[in-house]
């Protein structure tokens, strides 16, 4: 009896080796195709012939049989995983976070009648910003929007700053203006904006007009008021640059405090504070005369 069973196993093994040998030299293993059809077999979606073919394959292939059985094992198990119990503390935390504590739980903020939740537009804006700022792509988006805004501001026909970059470039090339760099930029932008604002002021009238006019007047007054200090700053920078070009580094260094004083004075005048007499006198001191004073015993 045992001898017969062993002979039977040997015969099957030889048959299997023969089939695998033939498949290896012809179409290759059918396991990939079988694996593709296994879900269809589990769902009962296969045609009768396909079903017979794959069943025949499964009778001889242990690996595919294991896959088929595992698929059947998974079928009732997966839907059971649709929910996980997070515990009662989770509910309480969610309700606290959504500011809607139920009776008996820790109280959240008062709910405004009529609306869903206490969130006003400031809260919504804050939340929106909080969500956006955490995204890695956010800086790229900001840069993109800023570029579009700049293009719109300087290129559209109704923009107050239309043509400003070109004019700034021209002014800088011409080398004129109160300040080497900032002067032309501020001057050209201010001039363009002023022109645009004045046109709108004349067209619309009313209270807003008076406010806008006040702002432009103040802008112009500030430019006018700070002009002498800016001129002094400009001169100091020019003198310093001249010394640098001549290679007189120590002489150029003497101009640095003067430039600092002039810049500070320019800023104070722009903000509306008068120059103190002491600062004024310090700002007007020639560095060379200071040198002479230092060298005199």
């Amino acid at each position: 009896m045992m001898q017969g069973g062993r002979n039977d196993r040997d015969r099957r093994r030889r048959e299997e080796e023969f089939v695998q040998g033939v498949l290896g030299q012809t179409s290759g293993s059918a396991c990939n195709r079988a694996a593709n059809q296994l879900p269809g077999l589990a769902d009962g979606e296969l045609a009768a012939l396909d079903r017979q073919l794959i069943t025949a394959h499964l009778e001889h292939c242990g690996q595919c049989r294991a896959l088929a059985v595992t698929l059947g094992w998974l079928e009732p198990l997966l839907p059971q995983m649709a929910e996980i119990d997070p515990g009662p503390a989770f509910t309480r935390r969610v309700l606290q976070k959504t500011s809607l504590a139920a009776p008996g739980m820790s109280a959240g903020p008062i709910i405004e009648p009529g609306g869903f939740g206490p969130a006003g537009w400031m809260d919504r804006l804050g939340r929106w910003w909080g969500e956006r700022i955490l995204r890695p792509i956010f800086p790229m988006q900001v840069a993109y929007v800023a570029t579009v805004v700049l293009i719109l501001l300087t290129s559209t026909p109704i923009s107050p700053l239309r043509g400003t970059p070109g004019r700034v470039l021209e002014t800088m090339r011409a080398g004129s203006g109160p300040l080497p760099v900032f002067g032309p930029v501020v001057g050209a932008a201010g001039e363009s904006a002023g022109l645009w604002i004045t046109q709108r002021v004349d067209a619309t009238g009313g209270h807003i007009v008076r406010v806008v006019r006040g702002v432009t007047d103040q802008w112009n007054r500030r430019i006018e008021r700070s002009a002498p200090a800016r001129n002094r700053l400009n001169e100091s920078i020019r003198d310093c640059a001249k010394q640098l070009r001549q290679g007189q580094l120590s002489d150029a260094g003497h101009f640095v405090p003067q430039i600092g004083h002039a810049a500070g004075e320019s800023w104070r005048q722009w903000r509306g504070r008068e120059a103190s007499p002491q600062n004024e006198s310090e700002a007007n001191v020639n560095p060379r005369s200071m040198d002479r004073e230092r060298s005199t015993p």
Partner: peptide, 11 residues
């Protein structure tokens, strides 16, 4: 494909 992959991973 995903179901087969999962079954294979479990095996």
């Amino acid at each position: 494909r995903a179901r087969v992959e999962l079954a294979r991973a479990i095996v």
